[in-house]
Simulated assay, not measured.
Amino acid sequence: MNKQRAQEIADSPIMANVTCDGVPIYIQHVDENNETATIYPLGQPENEQNVALSSLQEQ
């Protein structure tokens, strides 16, 4: 996923259907300099992790 689209999704109040390795996730923050995102699986905010934007897929 490109960083501009990831940022749009993170900023939007509307939930987008995004997955990481097949798992539905919520994008919390996008780091455009490092091209990473802070995400967590839906319903599991305690499992926050940083991943490469390239590992995110919009469904």
Score class of each variant (00 low, 15 high):
residue 17 N to A: 04
residue 6 A to C: 03
residue 42 L to A: 01
residue 50 N to G: 10
residue 25 I to E: 12
residue 37 A to V: 04
residue 10 A to Y: 00
residue 3 K to D: 05
residue 27 I to P: 10
residue 33 N to I: 07
residue 1 M to L: 05
residue 57 Q to S: 03
residue 26 Y to T: 14
residue 12 S to C: 07
residue 58 E to I: 04
residue 31 D to T: 05
residue 19 T to D: 08
residue 17 N to R: 02
residue 28 Q to L: 06
residue 12 S to P: 01
residue 52 A to I: 04
residue 43 G to K: 00
residue 34 N to F: 04
residue 42 L to N: 01
residue 57 Q to D: 04
residue 39 I to D: 11
residue 8 E to S: 07
residue 22 G to I: 02
residue 25 I to G: 11
residue 19 T to Y: 10
residue 46 E to K: 13
residue 52 A to D: 13
residue 23 V to H: 05
residue 37 A to C: 09
residue 24 P to I: 08
residue 11 D to V: 01
residue 59 Q to L: 07
residue 56 L to W: 15
residue 37 A to L: 08
residue 34 N to K: 14
residue 20 C to G: 03
residue 36 T to R: 12
residue 4 Q to C: 03
residue 41 P to G: 11
residue 18 V to H: 03
residue 29 H to L: 08
residue 21 D to F: 04
residue 26 Y to S: 08
residue 18 V to P: 03
residue 30 V to S: 06
residue 26 Y to A: 10
residue 36 T to Y: 09
residue 2 N to L: 01
residue 1 M to K: 05
residue 59 Q to P: 01
residue 36 T to C: 12
residue 13 P to H: 02
residue 52 A to T: 05
residue 43 G to C: 03
residue 49 Q to T: 13
residue 22 G to K: 01
residue 28 Q to H: 09
residue 23 V to C: 08
residue 12 S to R: 04
residue 28 Q to K: 11
residue 57 Q to P: 00
residue 40 Y to C: 15
residue 34 N to I: 05
residue 47 N to W: 07
residue 28 Q to P: 00
residue 48 E to R: 15
residue 33 N to C: 01
residue 9 I to A: 05
residue 1 M to F: 02
residue 44 Q to A: 11
residue 10 A to S: 08
residue 35 E to Q: 10
residue 42 L to P: 01
residue 44 Q to S: 10
residue 52 A to F: 11
residue 56 L to G: 10
residue 49 Q to E: 15
residue 24 P to L: 06
residue 38 T to S: 13
residue 45 P to L: 15
residue 57 Q to N: 03
residue 38 T to P: 06
residue 56 L to D: 12
residue 53 L to F: 12
residue 35 E to M: 06
residue 35 E to P: 03
residue 48 E to L: 12
residue 47 N to R: 15
residue 7 Q to K: 10
residue 25 I to Q: 12
residue 51 V to W: 14
residue 59 Q to I: 08
residue 39 I to C: 09
residue 12 S to W: 07
residue 42 L to W: 03
residue 49 Q to P: 04
residue 46 E to L: 12
residue 21 D to K: 06
residue 15 M to P: 00
residue 33 N to Y: 05
residue 36 T to A: 08
residue 27 I to R: 06
residue 40 Y to F: 15
residue 2 N to R: 05
residue 25 I to Y: 14
residue 20 C to S: 13
residue 12 S to V: 07
residue 40 Y to L: 13
residue 55 S to E: 09
residue 14 I to Y: 00
residue 52 A to Q: 11
residue 19 T to I: 06
residue 55 S to L: 10
residue 38 T to D: 12
residue 29 H to T: 11
residue 50 N to P: 07
residue 36 T to H: 10
residue 29 H to D: 09
residue 31 D to V: 04
residue 11 D to M: 05
residue 38 T to F: 09
residue 35 E to H: 08
residue 5 R to H: 03
residue 16 A to P: 00
residue 23 V to D: 07
residue 3 K to G: 01
residue 51 V to P: 14
residue 14 I to C: 00
residue 40 Y to G: 11
residue 45 P to D: 13
residue 14 I to Q: 01
residue 47 N to L: 13
residue 28 Q to S: 08
residue 44 Q to M: 11
residue 13 P to W: 02
residue 14 I to K: 01
residue 29 H to K: 14
residue 6 A to L: 00
residue 19 T to K: 09
residue 21 D to W: 06
residue 32 E to D: 11
residue 36 T to M: 14
residue 37 A to P: 11
residue 14 I to S: 00
residue 38 T to V: 13
residue 51 V to D: 15
residue 26 Y to C: 12
residue 11 D to Y: 02
residue 19 T to G: 03
residue 25 I to L: 09
